[in-house]
Design a protein around this nucleic acid. Structure first.
Lengths: 146, 146
DNA sequence: GAGATATACTTAGGAAGCTAATGATTAGCA
DNA sequence: TGCTAATCATTAGCTTCCTAAGTATATCTC
């Protein structure tokens, strides 16, 4: 949620405005696609992490998703209600729980379009090398922000 | 909320992951600063738009913030409760309302650090020309997404 | 001018996001 | 060993965000 102010060109504030806008637009596109299988972006993110590696702790999921642990509690609640995921006690540390996919949650992967599919054709005006450059700069910026 | 998957380098999906991460991190920084004057990022965005031009319609604010009109209804409700903003009927179109700053809302501008201030020093590792390049690429990408 | 269509805001209901505080468990250290 | 501090998940209370449906007003079309 950012205003279209006049910013010093090349300032971080200007970059923030654009980054925020682009993120919101892409999320909106993603929401449309993902909605076809009754998932929200947040649910998709958590499932994706589990498809990569099943059985993760709440704090792992939170830091990967860049949100607070209490948010993950809520998303996992919803996914559990849908029967896609289950809480399991962690034998190594009784403070923590592991989130694990159910059979249904595992099957879901095949029914769900990947991110690349969702964004296909949405920015054909950007050349390959421009996308890579963008990727590189964003990655560098990302590493610098605490 | 994005997983750290393995992505084809230079794909839109990879750019999305990074854009989303950077946006969240910067918003988190912003929230800390803005919290000192009891504002949320969404409230700050709406106030910023009004500081630039007072008396805007809900749909203008919504499209500038890239969110739905009903979200603006909620944010304006909160700002109104705080006495920073007021609803005013629009003489030109009786369907719409104008959001206008109160005196208190106007004064707020001087008490609030600008975006540039908030992000100062958060990415000194990025050169001036890199920031401008990033800005340019993001802007180009932004124009291509519906 | 009357009816259909479009636009502007609100409401309802739900999900996602935050912070701060709580309860349980573990780790550090004196 | 035993006390303190840190960590993990949850809860409570709010704000923000969405979609879909509702109400009021404008506009278009015949």
């Amino acid at each position: 949620m950012l205003p279209e102010g006049e910013f010093e060109p090349g300032s971080v504030a200007e970059v923030y405005r654009l980054v925020d806008l682009v993120a919101k637009k892409l999320t909106r596109l993603q929401r449309q696609q993902i909605g076809l299988v009754e998932l929200t972006p947040a649910q998709y993110s958590v499932l994706s992490l589990l498809w990569q590696r099943d059985g993760q702790q709440f704090n792992e999921l939170a830091s990967a998703c860049c949100c607070s642990p209490s948010t993950i509690t809520g998303v996992v609640d919803t996914l559990e209600r849908k029967g896609l995921v289950a809480r399991e006690s962690n034998p190594e540390d009784r403070r923590s729980l592991l989130v694990r996919l159910t059979d249904e949650g595992r099957v879901m992967e095949r029914a769900t379009p990947g991110l690349d599919m969702m964004f296909e054709g949405c920015c054909e005006g950007l050349r390959r090398d421009e996308l890579q450059q963008l990727s590189g700069l964003l990655s560098k910026l990302n590493d610098m922000i605490p």
